[in-house]
């Protein structure tokens, strides 16, 4: 067979076989976790509100209820809300947190995953005083005692908190109007 035909043919064959095998593996390993309260989320919720029955809210079209920047909204049987938020820190999507918000403001923050630099950016989780300044916050503020050396991580954390406050406002507006979000 001439080289001109053989070369593209072999390459095409290899690509096809590799793609077919990958489709097969994808089918085997892929687990759809959208709309499911995973174990990590569950332990985060327990950390904020304690044991209880939690449900992830759904929007009218059946998908997961979302607000600007919020991955999902979870409520427990007392109607307490927590927002799952992924925010950019030093690394993209580095901060993955659950933020509990109620009438009294931010009631708790729990980290699901933290992709920030170990020992530097992860101090936003380890430094309890840093997290403490957000608790009870009701309105967005411009003040923030950022951690030295972890400015971007601190800013990312503040952005996550702002997002949660915004989403809570929207959520309470919706529920007081028609109450369709609390199904």
């Amino acid at each position: 067979m001439p080289e001109k035909i053989k070369a593209p043919l072999v390459l095409t064959l290899i690509c096809t076989i590799v793609a077919a095998l990958l489709i097969f593996v994808h089918k085997l390993t892929y687990v759809d976790t959208t709309g499911v309260i995973t174990d990590e989320l569950k332990s985060g919720l327990t950390e904020i509100y304690g044991e209880g029955k939690y449900t992830m809210l759904r929007s009218d079209d059946g998908g997961v209820l979302k607000y600007d920047g919020v991955d999902s909204v979870i409520v427990n049987e007392d109607g307490k809300t927590a927002f799952e938020i992924t925010s950019d820190g030093y690394s993209k999507d580095g901060i993955h947190v659950l933020i509990g918000v109620g009438e009294e403001g931010i009631s708790g923050i729990s980290f699901i995953a933290l992709g920030e630099t170990p020992g530097v950016g992860t101090r936003i989780k380890d430094d309890k005083n840093f997290i403490k300044q957000f608790l009870g916050m009701k309105e967005k503020t411009t003040e923030l005692d950022a951690l030295t050396g972890a400015t971007l991580s601190s800013k990312g954390m503040k952005k996550a908190v702002d997002t949660a406050l915004n989403a809570y406002k929207e959520y309470t507006n919706e529920t007081s109007k028609g109450g369709k979000a609390g199904e």
Binding site: I14, V18, L21
Partner: peptide, 26 residues
């Protein structure tokens, strides 16, 4: 064939990388 050596290698390598990525994600 020699002329498509590198593309073939890269496809095979990329296949294995995607495989380990899927397994690790799962």
């Amino acid at each position: 064939p020699r002329s498509v050596k590198l593309p073939c290698y890269i496809v095979i390598i990329a296949g294995f990388v995607t495989l380990i990525e899927m397994l690790m994600k799962g």
